[in-house]
Structures are given as C-alpha cells and as structure tokens.
Amino acid sequence: MIEAAPTEKRLLRLDMMPHMLCPGCGHGIVFDAMLRVLARRYETLDGVAFVAGIGCSSRVVGYVDSATMHTTHGRPLTFATGLKLARPDLKVIVVTGDGDGLSIGGNHLIHAARRNIDLTCVLFNNEIYGMTGGQLAPTTVPGAFTSTSPEGNHEEPFDAARLVEAAGATFVARAQSFRTRLFEEVFAEALDHPGFSFVEVLTDCTEYFGRTNHLGTGADLLFAQGREEPAVDADLATRPTLRPVPEKRTRPTLATGVLHRSRRSTLEEAMGLVGGAR
C-alpha cells in the first residue's frame, strides 16, 4: 500500500515506523516536509548522509533510509565536518534541535558557520528540551513555564538565525512547521547553496511546552503559528507562581523566509578538496 505509493514514504525505513514522536509533535511535520523535498531530488538517498545529535529532533534521522548517524549530544556538526571533509562527494545534512545546536553544541554551530563548510543544518526549534521532560532551553521565551523554570523563565533567548548569520553562515533561513510549503522552499534552496546553509524551523512541543503553558492541542499550536500569535498563553501571567513572572513577554513574531544569502569560498574549496585543484 504505502510501499507502492509514489511518495516521500519510499525514503523511510518502514520497519522503524511509526516514529517515536508524541501525538501532534511539530517535528513530524517538518520531517515529512524534508522528505518531500528530498523525494523530488533523489530516487534513493545513496549519495546523502544524515548526521544528528541527541534530542527529539535528532531522532528523526533514524527513520530515513540513508546513511544516518545519531551522534552525541550537541556534536553532530563536528561529525558532519569530518565526514564532509573526508567525503566531499556526499551531501551531508545535519539535523539538530535548539538545545542540541544552541546550548551544548552552540560552539560547534558558530564554528561550522565561520568555516562555511558545505553542510545543510536544519535546527528544529521548539523552545524546550522534550526528550528529557520539558526543561528550559536557550530559546525559551521569557516568562514561559518549563519543568526547570517553575516561576517563569528569567532569561533571554537566542535568535538562532541572527547568531549563525553573525558567525559567518552564507545562507540563513527561518520557517515554521505550520507553513510547510515555505519550509520546503527554503530547505530546497539551502540544499542547493554551496557553503554552510542554516534553516531554523519553529516547531511546537505539544506535550511539554504546549501543555505546561496552557496552549492547547497540537492543532491549536499550529493555528497559533498560522495567526502569528504569541507563543505563550496570555493567561499565564495570572497563574499562581512562587513570585510574579517578571515582565511577561512572548515569542516575538519572527521574520521567516530566506534571511541572508552570500557567496564566499567554502572550506572544501579553500582546502582544495573540490574544484579540480587536486
């Protein structure tokens, strides 16, 4: 049935499905969109390798019928750097999350961007650590409740796209899980871009972020994205807490689409690994 269908499902390891993501998880939506883009370009994924870290987002590579590597927490870009330099013929796609890519792996992210190595990095940003039970992330909006910010988050979040652009990435885009067609467009452009291409995609954790912050179901969260509504429920400010939430704020309406594009030598070009120098 599905095996015969001419869809992106042919790129799945069917014996691993169904996947382990929660009902309504935005990651599954983004993952499917990635597969649709790849299915339009590749009959099979033999020339592609996927490298992922640790976390809910990183688990999706295990379901792709390709060369897939589920590495250590925060370090997928380091593995991908070595793989790409040793095998410039491979298209290497890195899947990471906001905790994996911006917290424990933040150093590797800025250095990969600085090197302009020809990798495509997709960062699933759901503002929380889902795999470990809903803890505070470096992307959590101020005021939001998580299992480790019971009084509301006191910290400012990273703007991942601007951070990576400042570090030297030559292609930076942002998309949402709700607007899958936009994600497909920017992901396809990222794959075509020579050099470090970075796509931040805002997705929703229904079980931890959504539930803890009274944001409703997966469908409610998706529709909120569609309406560009704040990412934290307005009623939260009145929720009884140990002390009042300081300066109640919400996830700002962030620009989406291709945010930055430039061209300079990739690391492989500079090292003479591609382009016929050797």
């Binding site: 590597m69 250590t72 380091t78 070595g82 040793a86 095998r87």
Partner: peptide
Amino acid sequence: MEDEMASLGAVLGAAMGG
C-alpha cells in the same frame, strides 16, 4: 577544530566516511 570534543567528533565522522 574548536575544541577536543569537536576534534574527535570530526575524526569519527571522517572514519565513517572511510
């Protein structure tokens, strides 16, 4: 690389590439 974790990570990625 940027640190030793990255160094061994890159080595392992390269080794997986052959």
